[in-house]
Amino acid sequence: MYEGAIQDLIDELGRLPGIGPKSAQRIAFHILSADPADVTRLAQALQRVKEQVRFCSVCFNVAEQEQCRICRDPRRTDEIICVVEEPKDVIAIERTGEFRGRYHVLGGAINPLEGIGPDNLRIRELMERLQAGTVKELILATDPNTEGEATATYLALMVKPMGLTVTRLASGLPVGGDLEYADEITLGRAFEGRRAV
């Protein structure tokens, strides 16, 4: 046990996800020996992120203004909405450069084991956006795991009566892998989504 400020810093760092007591101690001593200007920048960055960052009022992505950069961009089409679980999924899709529509961030996936049901996600807000009538296609880009698939199933069921085109991101074999290591679900999906060459 250290005393005073250094122990407080270790305790606070140790509360961060994925940071154990040893890592917290290592980071704390790194900060202690770092240049004061670097530490000030870090402290200011931490403060700014809490003061300035909020959720976009339209898509619930992280934003520094009322609306995020993507919702403000007039060059993007309003006819397609891509539904994702978390803001970091928006960044992953944006990196592909393939999608020019808008997003909707649910804030998680339906997970009854954690007590998260449809009412705990931003599904009601999505329905309100769809009812405006401009959207022609809804892309369900929730994670390809059990919770993400179930959330996509639920959304597809809810949106069906609206007569929109509802699509799900393709899943299948990862590039660079061996077929023999693929599990049945992944291989089954790859067969379902096979294409002519």
Partner: peptide
């Protein structure tokens, strides 16, 4: 693996 058939139905 029952997950696929289970998650396809809410």
């Amino acid at each position: 693996l029952y997950g696929g058939r289970i998650t396809g139905h809410y």
